[in-house]
Design a protein around this nucleic acid. Structure first.
Lengths: 130, 130
DNA sequence: ATAGGGCTTCCAGTCGCTGGAAGGTCAAGA
DNA sequence: TCTTGACCTTCCAGCGACTGGAAGCCCTAT
C-alpha cells in the first residue's frame, strides 16, 4: 500500500503518517521508487495510534501504549495506570473549562449586546470579578 | 515600576510581560538604563490581559478586547459576540473531553489492572470499540 | 509528448509562552 | 572601593502535534 491508501484506511492525513514515521512510531518499508510501502501491520498500528490520539493520549503515551501492546508479557496494570493518569488530566481540564464556561456565560447573560458601550464583560476584565 | 514589580502585581511572569510587549499588546516606557518603565495604565492592561487569558480568550481575542475596552464608542454587542463565540468553543471542547472521559473511564473500569497481560484498553485501541 | 495526480524531501509556521545563555545595572555589605 | 547577588536586558531555541507550501520526481492515461 502507498501512503494515500493507508491514509484513507486509517483515517489519518498523509502528512501525519509521515510525521509518525519521522518520530519513529512506525517504520514502513520502501519501494524501489522511494515510495513508502505499508504492510498490514503498519496500517494496524496507524489505526491504533489514531484511536489512542482520539482519546487524547499524547504521542509519548501512544508510544508507550504501542510498546505495551506489542509486549505480550505486559501487566495490564501498566496500561491501566497510564489510562488512569490520562483520565485524571482530562477531568482536570474539564473542571477548568467548566469554570471558564460558568464565568463567561454569566457575563454574557449580563451584557445587553446592543449599540451602547456599557459592558459588564469589559468591566469584569478591567477590575476583576464583582 | 520595573518588570519585577508589575509581574508581581499583575500575577504574570516577567517573561510573559516581555512577550506581550513583543507582540504589541503593551508599550511600556524605557528608563535611561534601558529598563522597562511601567505606568499604572500598563499594569492595568496587564491585569486585564491576565483575566482575559484566564477565561481562555486567545491572544488575538485579547487584543480585540483591549481595543474595545479603550474605545468608548464601542457597541457592547461586539464584545458580547466575541464572548459568545468563545463560549461556544469552550462548550465544544467540554463536550469532546466528556466523550473522551466517558470512553476512557469505561475502559479503565473494565481493566483488571493486575500482572496479567489481558487488557480491554489495548483491545479497544487495537480493534476499535466493541 | 503532455497533463494530471500522487509521491518525495525539506523548511517554516502555528500558539503562547518558557528556558537558557551572555551580558549590563544596581543596591548593600566588607 | 570592591564584590556579591539580585535584578534587568537581548536573542535564540524549544515545547506538541501537526500543517502548509515549495520544488521536484514518478506513474498512468491520453
Amino acid at each position: 500500500m502507498n501512503i494515500g491508501d493507508v491514509a484513507q484506511k486509517a483515517g489519518l492525513p498523509a502528512k501525519t503518517i509521515r510525521y509518525y514515521e519521522d518520530i519513529g512510531l512506525i517504520t514502513p518499508l520502501r519501494d524501489t521508487n522511494g515510495y513508502r510501502l505499508f504492510r498490514e501491520s503498519d496500517l494496524h498500528k496507524l489505526a491504533f495510534l489514531g484511536r489512542a490520539r482520539a482519546l487524547g493520549f499524547t504521542i509519548e503515551d501512544c508510544r508507550t501504549l504501542l510498546a505495551l501492546y506489542e509486549d505480550d508479557t505486559r501487566a495490564s496494570a501498566d496500561v491501566k495506570d497510564l489510562a488512569q493518569a490520562h483520565l485524571a488530566k482530562i477531568e482536570d481540564k474539564i473542571t477548568q473549562l467548566e469554570s471558564m464556561r460558568d464565568t463567561l456565560s454569566d457575563l454574557v447573560k449580563c451584557c445587553a449586546g446592543d449599540n451602547r458601550p456599557d459592558c459588564p464583560i469589559l468591566s469584569d476584565l478591567a477590575t476583576g470579578p464583582h
